[in-house]
């Protein structure tokens, strides 16, 4: 019976590892095509993979040790004497220092990515140069939708609404290929912006205006969700990020602005 249990525990560890190994093939891994579509996203994935490797080595090691100990216990002969290791000072020191070192390493190693994401307010562009992102929009979450305010074409975003501002709902338009800043706020409870393929997640907190920096590498639409359980309609807070080249972004602004300032007057000839 004891042998069976030791095999069982080893076996479940093997299954866990195998599942993780094949998960990407089954599309059980990262969202979309599995790749990060932002500059920082790639680094976040690298961090994720590094930590995954550390954890995997630890997991496999401890499971192997556990399996060995169980097996030994199950097959031990009655006359054999067990080794009593409880309270071993050296062991305690080893398994305190080694994990601490690993954690310290992770803490230091990830600092740069963290700082880029949250503190520096800038992201390295593809030439490795730091650029100060430009605030492109004020994104206001509310139960249960996203309302967005942009400055008019060629103008900077002002903290207060301006007469020529452009508005959209549930569609965040940004220029692609360069870092941008989005000012995140909420009208009511706590929400969180989550753009899985860009690896962006940030809470929106009442009374705060939180700058979020990111870039989108391709001209395409990305899914955007609310990642903070904000009420019964939380699941409805699905939106999209529309990333386009600068020219297309400006063209969109022109078109949106024309629509928004439409006075409904048509010369008789063009009236439908």
């Amino acid at each position: 019976m004891g042998k069976l249990w030791s095999l069982f525990f080893v076996f479940s560890a093997v299954i866990a590892v195998a599942l993780c190994w094949f998960a990407p093939d089954w599309n059980w891994w990262f969202p979309g095509d599995g790749k990060a579509h932002s500059t920082l996203g790639g680094k976040i994935d690298d961090l994720f993979h590094l930590i995954l490797i550390i954890v995997a080595v630890t997991f496999i090691g401890t499971q192997a040790a556990l399996g060995y100990v169980l097996w030994r216990g199950a097959t031990i002969k009655p006359e054999e004497k067990a080794l009593f290791s409880h309270g071993s000072h050296s062991l305690e020191v080893i398994w305190t220092i080694v994990p601490s070192a690993v954690l310290l390493f992770i803490a230091l190693y990830q600092l740069d990515v963290w700082a880029q994401f949250r503190i520096k307010g800038a992201i390295r562009d593809s030439h490795g140069k730091m650029v100060r992102p430009e605030p492109v929009a004020e994104l206001t979450a509310r139960q249960f939708e996203w309302r967005i305010r942009y400055p008019a074409k060629g103008k900077p975003l002002q903290p207060q609404p301006q007469p020529d501002d452009i508005y959209s709902v549930n569609e965040l338009h940004i220029p692609s290929g360069r870092p941008v800043e989005v000012t995140l706020r909420t009208d009511d409870v706590q929400h969180a912006i989550f753009i899985p393929e860009l690896r962006i997640k940030q809470d929106a907190v009442a009374s705060l205006k939180i700058p979020v920096w990111f870039d989108a590498l391709e001209n395409r639409d990305y899914e955007m969700l609310c990642a903070e359980l904000c009420g019964w309609g939380h699941y409805k807070m699905k939106a999209k990020v529309v990333a386009r080249s600068d020219a297309d972004f400006d063209a969109w602004k022109e078109q949106a602005s024309a629509e928004q300032f439409d006075d409904g007057f048509r010369k008789p000839a063009e009236a439908k």
Partner: peptide, 26 residues
């Protein structure tokens, strides 16, 4: 035009604690 008349409506700058969005140049 009423919306843009000063003083600004309290709603947009409510809450006191507002993080500056104009961060220094990196």
């Amino acid at each position: 035009s009423l919306q843009y008349q000063s003083p600004q409506p309290a709603k947009t700058n409510a809450g006191g604690h507002v993080v500056a969005t104009d961060m220094p140049e990196a």
